[in-house]
Design a binder for these strands. Structure first.
Lengths: 249, 249
DNA sequence: CGGCCTTGTGCATGCTTGTGCTTGAATAGG
DNA sequence: CCTATTCAAGCACAAGCATGCACAAGGCCG
């Protein structure tokens, strides 16, 4: 069996089982456990798996319950949110995507900002109801309970009539070659429609999202105008090479 | 089973049961109680659970703002909400108006209720995202910051395409002769459109709303099919005379 | 063809992590 | 105040890990 072939099999198995246990996969594929470990290491580097003690799990934290994602790396998210808020100006129409990091962006908007915020997240709308100067518009449709954003045909239709100056896009997984990906189909439609209707696209991604990939591709990285992240030492050159302005929080 | 996997299971269980008892979870997952304890410790460190003697509880739900209004007569609102929830059944399309009392209704929906809830309140949508069996649809439009509901032309248009089995209507002021009134124009349009598109109309009103009137008239009391309230000794005869079924919480 | 390099693999080596057990302290409830 | 749980800390063992090394297979170039 060829190496690449074996790795493809591991990925298949990861997707069907939802997990990989290194010890039981070795004998199964006829190689030593060390080789499996090296494979998992490679797949983790490519963002296709998340390495844990004893094996590997799917790369996205999207499968986790909502509360878990919200509590994940709160300091990093706040820093990213502050940096992102500085990119928004008076008079703009801001399309604010749902997600735990973008929720922080909503919390950190400049107090006197006079902008119109359009969002698909009920929680962001709740937060911005306390902001005295921004206009808030909520996009309607079906609520996806896992990601807590509005999806479905209605919102795609509603997005058609909106031309936003800037989109703040929450990122599940981003990879220089694969592009921006999510692990749910409906969400991918919504994010794609948002990108299509915004002049600038600012992606917010905590460091653990960088270099990972999920099932559904939304767009290539080159569609972004800005990428706000908190990784101090990651190699951001591949993103810059694609024309993205990288902002370190 | 991988460690991370086990912790995810514990989180799921915490969310579904509302609590974790360490002693009964150990044998269930096939590990010792010490391991469960360590897991709970980790989850508590991550802010995903609150450690208590004997197990764990969900982390303190973030106290949302405008607690002032919500703190107003909470016991009465909860009682009204429970009584209202009993009027809703599987298979119905429920139009759930925004408001502090209707928010309590959302909180008190029967856990296994299989209904579709359509709402104009982002906060109600947030609450129902945690309900496992109801479908949630959010009506889009401009957000009114004072009342925290969606208003405007867009929602009136969206309501046109909805035929609800039952509307749960939040009441600001209700008077047997003047009818149902609110003090904001935009809100009145929305409530009127909701009433027009629902087969049954259940109004929820704490006792202090009874017999008062505000600036903008929405509809006569006779449009209601039910009125849920908590006043034990008020004279409800005028409402009954208008064909409204009065439910005392 | 032969030498050399690269690549992939398996194995041996300490080292780290996760787990169960024991012990003594802390806590809840009568 | 007393008793039964529950907890925290420490210990020991097993599983998992990174690292370095050796060997085999294949490719490249002179």
């Amino acid at each position: 069996m060829l190496t690449e072939e074996r790795r493809a099999l591991i990925l298949n198995r990861l997707q069907s089982d939802g997990k990989i246990v290194a010890a039981e996969l070795g004998p199964d594929l006829g190689v030593s456990i060390d080789t499996i470990r090296r494979d998992l290491q490679e797949l983790a580097n490519a963002g296709l798996a998340r390495r844990v003690h004893g094996g590997a799990l799917p790369p996205t934290s999207g499968a986790l319950p909502y509360a878990a994602r919200r509590a994940h790396a709160p300091a990093a998210k706040a820093a990213i949110a502050r940096a992102t808020a500085k990119l928004l100006h008076d008079g703009q129409v801001v399309l604010l995507d749902g997600g735990t990091t973008t929720l922080e962006v909503a919390r950190h908007l400049a107090p006197g900002l006079r902008a119109t915020v359009v969002t698909n997240s009920p929680e962001i709308a709740s937060v911005l109801a306390d902001h005295s100067t921004v206009e808030v518009a909520l996009l309607g449709g079906l609520l996806d309970k896992a990601s807590r954003v509005v999806v479905g045909a209605a919102i795609i239709e509603a997005l058609r009539s909106i031309r936003a100056d800037v989109l703040v896009l929450g990122i599940c997984s981003i990879h220089p070659e694969v592009g921006i990906t999510v692990d749910e189909l409906e969400e991918s439609y919504v994010k794609r429609a948002m990108i299509a209707n915004a002049a600038e696209v600012v992606a917010v991604a905590s460091a653990d999202k960088l270099g990972s990939a999920a099932q559904y591709v939304i767009a290539p990285v080159s569609e972004l105008t800005h990428l706000v992240t908190d990784e101090p030492d990651a190699d951001m050159a591949p993103y810059r090479a694609l024309g993205v302005e990288v902002v370190l929080a």
